[in-house]
């Protein structure tokens, strides 16, 4: 049996009809597919199939009252029916519209969190990449927020941000009356962004530190010899060298922040309305009311997903064009 290892021979796959190509590919690479099979099966069963069902549900009027369920020995069958685009129309244009305000806040939240997290992570990574004393200790302390489960750290933040908590007591020492971080609409948003940055910086920092260490030292030395200032070296050597890592972590950061369920939900629950991002809003439609509105919740979820898919493809295309521009 031959297995193509990445290299010269592998590129020479002949151009034939699709069927031929599939057969050829199968003979040659069945082993590769076998190694991917477990992941594909798990993702297909846990993500793919439910997603299709979820898309279907978003076109129906399913609520917790008409979805089939089993109570004891009795099985109640499904009674919901197809309603077409009604849910989507209702969400996007309905009276007392909730979707658009949540969408704008979600976008503001994502941009604020990703930009600040990236900036802080980059600054820390650059500093930690120099030979300073106790670098290992600083690095360990700075990564710590990542190591402790979110529901624990957010609980800690709730105690700190509570009306009589540590932050407001500190502000009182400075003779400032702190806002109630967990209930005042504006303060809530500030608190949410702050806590999310606190949670996200370690991942950014560690990834960027890895990227920095992969930039050849000679580039920096050559630039230094040519008389480039520290800032010029940062802009012309460090940032371009980080591009592969940056583009990945920013994309992941956007996706993860947009869908950041834990921080908002654990910090505020589903009660405060203005601070809910789309994901927690969908969850609120889902579990926060009676009857639970599965269909609308699924529709909001699908809208989130479509927005992210559009964003990702635009972003990837933009990256590709930029890279070609840089290479040409």
């Amino acid at each position: 049996m031959t297995v193509a290892v990445q290299g010269e021979t592998a590129r020479t796959t002949p151009r034939k009809s699709p069927l031929h190509r599939i057969k050829y590919s199968y003979d040659r690479y069945w082993y590769a597919w076998a190694m991917c099979l477990p992941v594909v099966l798990v993702l297909g069963a846990i993500v793919g199939y439910p997603l299709i069902q979820g898309i279907y549900l978003s076109f129906t009027d399913a609520t917790s009252q008409n979805v089939g369920r089993t109570i004891g020995a009795n099985h109640i069958p499904d009674t919901y029916s197809w309603v077409g685009l009604t849910n989507y129309v209702g969400i996007l244009t309905g009276a007392n519209n909730q979707f658009w305000p949540h969408l704008f806040w979600t976008i503001a939240w994502t941009v604020a969190c990703v930009v600040l997290t990236y900036a802080i992570g980059l600054a820390l990574a650059v500093v930690l990449n120099r030979d300073i004393r106790a670098r290992g200790l600083y690095r360990m302390l700075l990564i710590l927020p990542w190591a402790v489960p979110t529901f624990v750290t957010i609980f800690a933040w709730r105690l700190i941000l509570a009306d009589d908590g540590a932050v407001n007591q500190l502000l009182a020492l400075l003779h400032i009356t702190g806002p109630s971080w967990l209930s005042d609409p504006l303060a809530q948003k500030v608190a949410a962004v702050g806590v999310n940055i606190w949670c996200g910086v370690p991942f950014m920092m560690v990834s960027l530190l890895g990227g920095l260490q992969a930039i050849p030292r000679e580039l920096h030395e050559a630039a230094e010899m040519d008389g480039a200032t520290a800032w010029q070296r940062f802009v012309n050597v460090t940032l371009p060298g980080l591009r592969p890592v940056s583009s990945t972590v920013i994309l992941l950061g956007v996706i993860w922040t947009f869908n950041q369920f834990n921080v908002i939900f654990l910090l505020f629950g589903t009660n405060s309305d203005s601070v809910q991002i789309l994901v927690t809003y969908a969850y609120k439609l889902f579990f926060g009311q009676q009857p639970q509105d599965y269909a609308s919740s699924a529709a909001v979820g699908i809208l989130c997903l479509s927005l992210l898919v559009v964003f990702t493809s635009v972003y990837r295309r933009w990256l590709k064009r930029n890279d070609e521009g840089a290479l040409a």
Binding site: L43, A45, I46, V47, Y49, P50, L51, Q53, G54, I55, L57, S58, A62, V67, L251, L252, I255, W256, F258, N259, F261, L278, V279, A282, Y283, L285, F286, Y294, S297, A298, V300, G301, I302, C304, L305, L308, V309, T312
Partner: peptide, 18 residues
């Protein structure tokens, strides 16, 4: 990459049934 984009709310009911 795509699977990172799925909100919990879409998958919850179907997944529960499965």
């Amino acid at each position: 990459l795509l699977t990172q984009m799925f909100p919990v709310a879409v998958l919850m009911v179907p997944l529960y049934k499965i």
